[in-house]
Each structure stands twice: as C-alpha cells, then as structure tokens.
Design a protein around this nucleic acid. Structure first.
Lengths: 342, 342
DNA sequence: CTGAAAGCGCTAACAC
DNA sequence: GTGTTAGCGCTTTCAG
C-alpha cells in the first residue's frame, strides 16, 4: 500500500478543511488542541506523509542545500560533507549531493542540476575559484553559496579555508629547519585544484626566502596513488631530494609508500609532509606530519555561513582558519645536509 | 536577477503555448526544428531554468534517490557514496544524502525525511538489517530500496554485500595458518553494526573449527581511533594475544597504532588484519592485510539494482560478492607459537 | 477559529 | 503541430 494519502483525504477523514490540516502541520498552536488531535489521528490512520514537493512549489524556499565536492573518495571532502550533513540535519535541511570528479567541465552541469532543484543555497569545492563560470552564474542569479577549501582572490564571495600558501610555506620551512636543502613538491594538477597551485606557491616562497633554488614539482593526477614512477627521478640519481612536501595528505601517504618501494625509509632517507590533516594520517607509522585543518568543523561552519546568506545576510564572510602543523614523525633531519648556503 | 522566469513567460516570449515549451523540453522531436529553436532562444534569453519541483508534483517519479549511511567519516561508506553518486549522475538522478551517525534511532527519522521528499528509491546501510522498523516501513509502503553492506537474513530485500562471516573466517584462518593460537577480535558495537556481529561470528567459527578456545572480543565505539586503553589487556600481560582480527580496516589501522604505542611491532609482535579494503590500507606500512571488497563498485551496483526495482522489477536481488584477502604485510608468523594442539 | 479559493510550475490528455 | 485545460499537493490570504 503505497503512501498515497493526501492532505485532502486527511481533511475529510478528520472532518475539517485542508487549510486546517496545513495549520496543524505548520503552526499547531493556532489550532485548538482538540482539533489538532483529531487531525493527527486522521494522519496516523491514513499513514499520511506530507509531500514536500507540494510545499516547495508553493513556497519561496525549499529547505534544501546543494553540495558539490570533487570526490568522496578523498577523506578530506568526505569528512567535510559529514560536517555539512550533520549541521543540515540539525537545521532540518535536506542535502543534495553531487561530485565533479575533479573535472571543471562537470561543475557547471552539477550546479545547474542543483539550481533546477531550487536549492536555497550551495556549498562548493571548485577546481578553480577564480575565474569560474559557476561563480559568475551564481552571482548573476543571486543564489547564496559558500566555497569550502577554496581560497578565492575576490572578496565578494563567502569562503572557508585555511591559508593554502601559508600552510605549504610553514611545512616547507619546518623541513628546511631540519636541514633539508633539496626539496620537491608533490601536487595535483593545478587545473583540477587551485589549492594545489596556491600551496605550490607557498612552497616556492619558502624556498626562495631560504635562498634555496628553484621549486621542483612532481605533478600527478588526482586520485592517483601509484607514485613509484612519477617520483623516480626525484628519489633516485644525483638530483635526489631529501624531502617531499605534498599538497595533500593522500598524496603524502602515497608518496611515503613510493619511497618505501624505492627502498628509502621515511624519515630516515627522505622526509614527507602533507597538508589537510585527514584522520588516518595520525594513525599510521611514521605518523604523518601535516598542516592540519579542522575538516569536519569547516563543513559545519560552511553550512552556518550559508544559512546566514540564505536568511538575507548580504556581505559574504570569508573565514581563513589557522592551520596547525601536527607533530608528525614523517619528518626528520636531512640525511646528507649540504653545507649551509650562508 | 534571480531566475524567476517560468514556462509561461518562455511560451509568450516565443509565441507558443506552454504545452509546446514542455514538449521542447521533454520530447523535442515531436516539435518542428524551427519551433524548437525559437523556444530555445526564448529560454536562453529569459535565462529559463525548469523548476524540477513542478514536474515532481505532477509526475509519479521524482528522479531522485535517497542515501543513508552511518557516516561519511569512514572511507568505506564515503567511497560507496562516491560510487552511488557517479552512477546516479550517469542516470540523471539526484542524490539526497543523509547519515545516521551509527545511531539506529536516527535511521527512521532520516528515511522518513527522504520519503517526504518522495524519492523514487533508497540505498541504505543500516545498523541492523534484521528486525529493523525502517525495513518494515519501506516494505509496507512498497518503496524500492537496496541495502548496501548489510547482509540480511531475509531474502525478500535487495542487498549488496560480501559474506561478512566468511570474510572474518578467512582472515582468522589466515592468521591461524601462520601459527597464531591466541587471537582476539576488535569490533564496533553490535547494536551499531550487524556487520560487526556477523564478522565476530565468523571469527568465532574459525577459532572453534581450529579447536582454539573461546573467541575474545574487544568492543569499541564507532569512530573510535584511540585504542591504546581498550587494547591494553589484550596486548599485555599473561593473556596477551599474538593476532588481532579487526572488523573494519579503520579499526585495524587504529589497532596497529595502538600496538605501536604499547611498544609492540606489527607483524613482529602482533599480527593485525582488517576487513573492508579501504584504499589507504594498501599505502601504509606495513601494508594492511584486509578482506577487500570493491566498495565503489558496490555503490554503483546498488544504484543499478535500485533502478531495476524502480522500473518495476519485483524480485529483489541479493548479491554476495566475493571478498579477496589482500597480500598484506601486517600479518606474519606468530611470535611465540604455542605447541600445536594436535 | 475555520473554510473557500487561488495559485506555485509543470505535464498530459484531449481537442482542434 | 499546437493549444486548452485540468490538476499534482501544498500554503495562504481573505472572508466568515
């Protein structure tokens, strides 16, 4: 027996009008207790289930939010979605989930679908937050949205992130402080992640501030965990590095694995640092040293921001959270420190 | 300028009726190319965006599916959701996401919300698939659904899972084959996960089949990663075990961490095995030995099943996938093998 | 305190 | 080919 019963049926069963049923649902205090009870009894009897789509059509708001992340396969995003979902649940909001698979092409389509659903607002992690048609669209249509993890240059969009360049800078500096002079960054493709780009810039700045040469980069596809080959030229031969700064923790864990495959120990032969602070990083051996961000809380916070925007708050807030360098064991003194340049 | 334009406006702009606009959207071939173009131009001009909720109200189907998982914070579920999302995207379906946080109490509420949204069907990972009010509800209302990871006793519900007992059995047997005689299982609370329970049963059976004593259990809360204290009595003292079979990979990784904190090496002092096959398990050192299931594919498959049910297929399929014991390094010969019982 | 009535945006007969 | 029309289930004035 499919739940087909409508408000009309409940009304007739309870001997009232549909308006009263609606009131019982939405503002029970405007209806005498006795009537409320009668209507509720009818609802129970008929197994009534309000059709939210009816309400959505009528009302200005749908009480739903759209979420777009690159992929759930990376714990960073999954954890943030958990935070969003939790906060949404507390707020009685429905979450529509989409993922772009790191493909900027798919972002617009996904957001478009979300907008067709008339979501009240969006939380997005975009490939590139600057110069992105999605943002133009959202701005043009005046749809509330907040960026998560993206750290856009423009200040008229709400966003929650860490200071990406800075987190890479700090991580790099920590390695330099341990005597490392020959470093490389392992990063995802910049087209797929502006965080990657910003982090690489921080890496480069830390190097140049320390008077160390050009920034070396090992760029890999996202979701890639097989780093043996990509890292070969960085880990072996005359130009071998002693430290790897990775743009994400997943990459860092994969890099540690690749080091081992090359017969190198971490941090004995090469130090590895990550950025993100995924939970598993703290459980492995050696414990991953990472620039930690409170991923789940950021998701919750993003929803709180979004709620504000939906409620009409006009000036979008940008929150740059402090990251925290975790005390990891994956970083140690450089094995063959070249003589200091100064 | 909010996207307010409706079909009616498009129609008048294009000089046709709303029926024609609807046709252009849903079956363009029934409309002369020239008219299609004119209407499309009007849509572009007005920045028209179909309101899916209008359609939903009218049509029997909403082209949306509901998903309920315990949490996105565990990569097993996150990865499966990624699979679901991907398949849904290919099918043009919208995903409504909820999570129960392992709380059976919250399951019913979440599903209820999903049903109020009139989703066409559901994919669920429940705390307990047998004797669950959610299933009764869904059955009573005749809503298509498929269970993911749950392995229910009843055969009238669709499900996709591995053989949970068997996967634990095999893992345990692998340890026994390495000479382990003193084992314990680390598992989440049974009320929160029937998989845990089934896996513990498989563990117990393997022990008794090998003539080894009672099954020892270290039960912990889900999401718990601090296992130093819970495992203390299992790792130290006269009753110390030489192997830990863990009901999930996350638990296994946490257990490995706890072993180290106790000054024990894995697998030198104690062997650790997991179940699930999360990606990170293959990247850490020692590589986690796990009973691997193809998580993401299972998500996709679940959506394929669901689609079948939605299309009217009446007999729910249950798929028990083969698990695969990964060649992990986290399991080795028992340190102090007690003399064989035979 | 309660009901009648007018839609929200869309689809689908059913006419023309 | 195309338009008219009657709702889908709900909320919400506006009267009574």
């Amino acid at each position: 027996m499919t739940s087909k019963s409508t408000m009309r049926e409940v009304a007739s069963k309870a001997g009232v009008s549909i308006a009263t049923v609606s009131r019982v649902i939405n503002s029970p205090d405007e209806v005498p207790t006795e009537t409320v009870e009668r209507v509720r009894a009818a609802m129970r009897y008929l197994n009534y289930r309000p059709n939210i789509n009816g309400r959505r059509l009528k009302m200005a708001q749908t009480r739903s939010v759209g979420v777009l992340v690159p992929t759930m396969a990376n714990p960073v995003f999954a954890t943030s979605v958990q935070g969003i979902e939790q906060a949404a649940h507390e707020d009685g909001l429905t979450v529509l989930l989409t993922s772009s698979n790191y493909d900027p092409q798919r972002e617009l389509g996904a957001v478009s679908t979300l907008l067709n659903n008339r979501v009240d607002g969006l939380i997005l992690t975009l490939a590139n937050a600057d110069d992105n048609p999605v943002i133009d669209l959202l701005k043009a249509e005046n749809i509330p949205f907040v960026l998560l993890f993206n750290q856009p240059a423009r200040k008229d969009v709400a966003s929650i992130s860490v200071d990406n360049a800075r987190s890479a800078y700090d991580m790099t500096q920590a390695m330099i402080a341990q005597g490392h002079r020959s470093l490389a960054m392992v990063a995802g493709r910049f087209e797929s992640s502006d965080r990657s780009k910003q982090r690489f810039e921080g890496f480069g700045k830390a190097l140049s501030d320390a008077g160390l040469g050009a920034a070396r980069l090992c760029q890999v596809g996202f979701g890639e965990t097989e780093l043996f080959t990509p890292l070969k030229s960085f880990l072996t031969g005359p130009d071998a590095v002693t430290g790897l700064v990775c743009s994400t923790d997943m990459l860092a864990i994969a890099a540690m694995s690749a080091c081992r495959e090359h017969g190198l120990s971490v941090p004995g032969d090469v130090s590895v640092g990550g950025i993100d602070g995924i939970a598993v990083g703290g459980l492995i051996s050696p414990k991953l040293c990472s620039a930690v961000q409170p991923t789940q809380e950021m998701g919750q916070q993003a929803l709180a921001f979004l709620r504000g925007l939906i409620r009409g708050q006009t000036n979008p807030q940008s929150l740059i959270l402090p990251h925290q360098l975790s005390t990891g064991e994956s970083i140690g003194p450089a094995r063959h420190p070249s003589s200091p340049r100064l």
